[in-house]
Simulated scan of single mutants.
Amino acid sequence: MHATTKVKDVLTTGEVAKICNVAPRTVSKWFDSGALTGYRIPGSKDRRIPLTQLIRFMKQHGMPLNGLMTGQMRVMIVDEEADIVEVLEKILEDEAKYEVEVAKSGFDAGVMAEKFRPHVILLDMHLKGVDAPMVAKHVKGNSDLQLTKMIAMSGKMTDDEAKGLLAGGFDGFLRKPFHVRQVIEAIEDATAVVY
């Protein structure tokens, strides 16, 4: 997919933002605060970050380095239905070559999203004790996860309810039961604008 892109020795803030899956503004903040070392191009506001510095920074902050070399898509599944999750995880990893993490609860999802910085979260709308729209709001409101796309999954919602989700900050909707091909397409559609 994106595996052919060769990593350069020096990166722009935009490239760093994609690798770390954060907004470019966030990278500028890291740079300006001195947390991320780099230099400015003389006579310009443009910042440049040497790859070695970025790797050091990512290690310091426990960020997954795998997005670095491959630009591999990171997908987080938040669902309690073990059988669905198992199949989904296996196929997304084997066929689409995504990197997949699974969270069983809204709380796990919050903690894992911070660390894993998924490009896409597949969120079951009917998790026990979880207000799924609130989870979506939380993700969208977190400046480090601004670029994370949220795809809702449900077997119980009407088309109108599903449309409401898209208005409420979700980037896609999957009706259960779904074919895995549909999942991959939904992920590709949701993230097409990022790359």
Rank of each mutant, 00 (worst) to 15 (best):
A3G: 11
A3L: 12
T4D: 15
T4M: 15
T5P: 09
V10P: 01
L11G: 04
L11N: 02
T12Q: 05
T13N: 11
G14S: 13
V16D: 08
A17W: 05
K18P: 05
I19G: 03
I19E: 03
C20K: 01
C20Y: 01
C20R: 03
V22N: 02
P24Y: 06
R25P: 02
T26H: 07
T26L: 10
S28N: 13
K29W: 11
W30E: 04
W30P: 04
G34Q: 10
G34C: 09
L36V: 06
G38H: 05
R40S: 10
I41P: 07
G43H: 08
G43V: 09
G43M: 09
S44E: 10
R48P: 08
I49V: 15
Q53M: 09
Q53C: 09
K59C: 02
K59I: 04
K59G: 03
Q60M: 11
H61A: 00
P64A: 05
P64N: 07
P64I: 02
L65S: 03
L65T: 12
N66L: 13
L68Y: 07
M69S: 14
G71S: 08
Q72V: 15
Q72Y: 06
M73P: 01
M73I: 11
R74F: 14
V75P: 00
V75E: 00
M76N: 03
I77W: 00
D79G: 00
E80F: 05
V85Q: 06
V85R: 04
E86K: 13
V87I: 15
I91D: 12
E95D: 15
K97T: 12
V100H: 00
V100M: 04
E101L: 14
A103E: 09
K104E: 12
K104H: 14
S105I: 08
S105W: 08
S105E: 11
S105P: 10
F107M: 15
G110W: 11
G110P: 07
V111T: 14
F116D: 05
P118W: 03
V120E: 03
V120A: 07
I121R: 01
I121A: 02
L123I: 00
L123Q: 01
H126L: 06
H126T: 05
L127C: 03
G129D: 13
V130G: 00
A132G: 04
A132C: 07
V135M: 13
K137L: 15
H138T: 15
H138I: 15
H138V: 15
N142D: 15
D144K: 15
Q146F: 14
T148P: 07
T148M: 06
T148D: 05
I151V: 13
M153H: 03
M153E: 07
G155N: 03
T158A: 09
D159P: 10
D160P: 01
G164C: 04
A167G: 11
G169P: 01
G169S: 00
F170S: 00
D171V: 00
D171P: 01
F173Q: 00
F173H: 09
F173E: 00
L174T: 02
L174Q: 02
R175V: 10
R175E: 12
K176Q: 10
K176L: 07
R181M: 13
R181C: 06
V183K: 01
V183T: 10
I184F: 08
I184T: 12
E185P: 03
I187P: 06
E188D: 14
E188H: 11
D189T: 12
D189M: 11
T191Q: 02
T191A: 01
A192I: 08
V193K: 14
V194C: 10
